[in-house]
């Protein structure tokens, strides 16, 4: 039966700690993204998350940092 994992070797486990950290970071970003999405729906999101009708982008073009030139 597929439900029983065959050949369990306890001395060699699959890597779990590192992937788990990735998953936790992913969960945090999921929550943050949901919060920004909610703010967007409520019309409260600042910056580039605002709809493109605002003037943010043309203004942004003029403030390029000196090291970028």
């Amino acid at each position: 039966m597929s439900a029983v994992p065959a050949g369990l070797a306890t001395d060699q486990q699959p890597p779990m700690t590192v992937p788990l950290r990735y998953f936790l970071a992913g969960f945090a970003f999921l929550l943050a993204g949901g919060a920004v999405g909610l703010a967007h729906v409520l019309g409260a999101a600042p910056g580039f998350a605002r709809s493109r009708t605002s003037t943010c982008c043309s203004r942004a073009g003029s403030v390029s940092p000196s090291w970028a030139r």
Binding site: A32, S64, A68
Partner: peptide, 10 residues
């Protein structure tokens, strides 16, 4: 994401 929210190109 913070930079996009702050519209800070730098």
């Amino acid at each position: 994401a913070g930079a996009f929210l702050a519209a800070s190109v730098h």
